[in-house]
Design a protein around this nucleic acid. Structure first.
Length: 315
RNA sequence: CGCGGGGUAGAGCAGUUGGCAGCUCGGCGGGCCCAUAACCCGCAGGUCGUGGGUUCGAGUCCCACCCCCGCAA
């Protein structure tokens, strides 16, 4: 059997797990890679290449980096000349127009890290943690014009614990589903899978995360705040303000229930060398912090250098 | 040339107008105690990021460079 001529579309680290799996499997021939354009990034505004691009360069794949895929009319015809069998899309970061989705003979397959039709959209993993879901998973599906809307080829589930962070969960979901992507793609091409239409009435959506989402509202319950800290780790990183300075909060944190103490939300309590903050409901013990300009550190290190914290208010 | 904070003992920090380098924690030794991460006594541990300059004298002032970090993108 000939190798499956594949166009891979993706951008961040998460995508690279799948690209590597496809490369290592041996039954696929990557004829092109589409990834986001290089952008000035970091402290000195250096030009940064996407993780997917780095692999593509290493393997000497043909690379496309349109500024806006929608606006680039020529790219569809150029892709067609590759006579690809399949397009595989993992976290590209742009809407892909219909003409592009149709350049490969068998169409486009998407990997989406949620149990579709739940959590369509830009932040499925973060949202599942934020909402305290008991389980999430990964869906392999065919793409159509609507976002995360196409018929499902396969799914895999994973239980969630209260201690799951966004970065680790992404990795675990990838580990869990790279094989599934490959087997599903091959079965689909061989006509061994019948795609199943999603139950669109059950669909839920999650929007892209912005920086304002990452600020702590201490009026919320300790549980809600804890989930945010885990869901937004390491990016964008949950933060609050202390004495006019930004301070980031990292996992782990622990919820403390103490009914007889009354403090205003955001108030710091130093007890037994532990850093505890009053929330709208219950209390949160913070273990790891980072003051702007400083490195991330343990709470007891932080307390050592920052005297008279007791009673101060985080906002 | 995007904006900003920082580099001082193993860790976290302080160091006033330039004048003997400190604090808390940790480490080591000893003491107290039924006992302890508690308490008491003692000890060790620093080329103050690097190089140059000013000065009788620089952690501190001037110049250059290296490294870490927050914002923004």
């Amino acid at each position: 059997m000939d190798k499956i001529k594949t166009i891979f579309v993706g951008t961040p680290e998460f995508s690279t797990h799948y690209l590597n799996a496809i490369i290592n499997d041996g039954r696929f021939d990557v004829v092109a890679v589409i990834t986001q354009s290089d952008k000035p990034s970091g402290r000195k505004h250096e030009i940064i290449q996407s993780p997917v691009k780095k692999i593509a360069l290493e393997k000497d794949f043909k690379i496309f980096q349109p500024e806006r895929l929608k606006a680039d009319i020529n790219i569809a015809s150029e892709l067609k000349t590759l006579k690809a069998d399949l397009m595989i899309v993992v976290a590209y970061g742009q809407i892909i127009p219909k003409e592009i989705l149709e350049v490969a003979r068998y169409g486009a397959i998407n990997v989406h890290p949620s149990l579709l039709p739940k959590y369509r959209g830009a932040s499925p993993v973060q949202s599942a943690i934020l909402n305290g879901e008991e389980k999430t998973g990964v869906t392999i599906m065919l793409m159509d014009e609507k976002m995360d809307h196409g018929p499902i080829l396969s799914q895999v589930e994973r239980k969630l614990s209260e201690e799951e962070t966004n970065d680790i969960l992404h990795e675990k979901l990838a580990d869990l589903s790279t094989d599934l992507l490959i087997s599903s793609a091959i079965k689909f091409i061989n006509g061994e899978i019948k795609p199943i239409e999603q139950d669109h009435d059950q669909a839920t959506f999650c929007r892209i995360i912005n920086k304002e989402d990452a600020k702590v509202d201490w009026n919320k319950s300790a549980q809600e705040i804890k989930r945010k800290i885990y869901a937004f780790h390491p990016w964008p990183g949950t933060w609050t303000m202390l004495d006019g300075k930004r301070i980031k909060i990292f996992p782990p944190t622990k919820i403390l229930k103490q009914k007889n103490i009354k403090k205003s939300p955001g108030q710091i309590i130093i007890n037994n060398n532990e850093l505890i903050v009053a929330c709208g409901e219950d209390f949160l013990k913070l273990d790891r912090l980072q003051l702007e300009g400083k490195k991330e550190m343990n709470a007891d290190d932080f307390l050592r250098g920052y005297e008279d914290l007791n009673g101060k208010i985080l906002a």
